[in-house]
Write a protein that binds this DNA or RNA. Structure first.
Lengths: 220, 220
DNA sequence: TAGCTTTCTATTGTATACATGTCACTGCAA
DNA sequence: TTGCAGTGACATGTATACAATAGAAAGCTA
């Protein structure tokens, strides 16, 4: 029982959703998954319930689980919530980030400036946000952000990859946030982080609108 | 299957924790609970896993579930997180609360001023916060706050009841928050809500410190 | 007696069978 | 053709038996 079947199934399903292999609306049937994973329904069942609690699965027809769909309003709320929480973390980080972490933040910022490869930049980008998250020293808010990001990333995976045009403006925004944190300006850090998250959302929803301009009420 | 056994057990356990009937550290054994509820282990098991995810239960000796204990640091983080989220909701409410809700908020404020009974005031107090929460129009942040409040209230239930001396100052703070929201001053609403939550935490931790002044690292 | 190993038991993890509910589909009647 | 009731299948909900693990306690050895 070193590693529980239910845990690994849960992780695997998340990974598959993240990789875009499981698209929203796709059915998640206990029996079928049990056969695929070579276990009984019991651990699968637990994994599905956890997915539901993480808002990555929902109930479809006949009470069956399906990969969660998101309406545009939901998405808007999700990005707003993500932005607000990460802004709060940025504000807290500005007040109490350690000297070591401040230096790390600067280092990562420079690495980002020197980087042109979108894939590598994406990794640097997540390190940037990771430092701020841990620098805020509030594990509850940090895990709340993680949960929201899970949902955000799942949605992105199902819809499209990051737009490379965002890279340049993202760099500028990172610089602004970093300066605010380093000068311990909590209000400015909050404001800039909020618009940073918001602008990435605007780009995404923009792409989406162009992809399906005629649909009345699209569900993702 | 209209109401699932797992659901009602989950709710019941939460209620018992909230009522202070189950104190932190108390064991939650599947078999025992199953007999008490007159069901099999299966739905109990699901309820316990959900409690764990809600941070109301944790693993004790022999992997057994126990009602979650909280160290002072955890508590501090919890109150900080609660304050930050509710502040965010207050700020959003200041920007976008409907006219109807604004009037409701004023009404509730007046009711609070006219009320001397602590029990009745407690009910008015929760209505006050409820209006702000819904006025922010972000269900994700709202449910996040709900989850955190669950943990906060569970801790309070296990430790002590609300201090009646808080009543007077709470009224003043509510007035300030209301004015900020009505005048659509998001920053002020955020600031005041943050200190409102913080001050209730200060009172509580103060009482606690007096109750056990000599313990090195108390766990609740 | 300290430290290690073994055993033993309480408790959870998993498998499987059966129960139950929901929805779709069919067939009949108006 | 439309509405509705009956029926059936599919998927989850629950019960129960068995497996596995992690501590604790006992015993063994140096």
């Amino acid at each position: 029982m070193a590693i529980r079947a239910a845990d690994s199934i849960f992780e695997t399903l998340i990974d598959e959703i993240m990789a875009g292999q499981m698209v929203p609306g796709e059915p998640l049937v206990e029996q079928t998954l049990a056969e695929q994973f070579g276990v009984s329904r019991t651990p699968v069942r637990e994994a599905l319930h956890r997915l539901e609690q993480a808002c990555l699965a929902e109930r479809g027809a006949r009470r069956a689980f399906v990969v969660r769909r998101m309406a545009p309003e939901d998405l808007e709320e999700l990005f707003e919530a993500t932005g607000e929480i990460e802004s709060t973390l940025a504000a807290l980080a500005a007040k109490r980030m350690s000297e070591i972490k401040r230096r790390k933040l600067e280092t990562v910022l420079d690495e980002g400036d020197a980087c042109d490869d979108p894939a590598a930049y994406s990794e640097i980008n997540s390190r940037f946000h990771e430092i701020i998250k841990s620098g805020a020293r509030n594990s509850i808010l940090a895990s709340t952000l993680d949960e929201l990001n899970l949902r955000t990333l799942a949605w992105r995976a199902a819809n499209f990859r990051e737009d490379s045009r965002r890279l340049a403006s993202s760099r500028v925004e990172h610089r602004g946030i970093t300066q605010a944190i380093l000068s311990q300006d909590a209000a400015s850090a909050r404001r800039q982080m909020c618009s940073h998250v918001a602008s990435s959302y605007i780009v995404l929803s923009d792409i989406l609108a162009r992809r399906s301009p005629d649909r009345g009420g699209p569900e993702f």
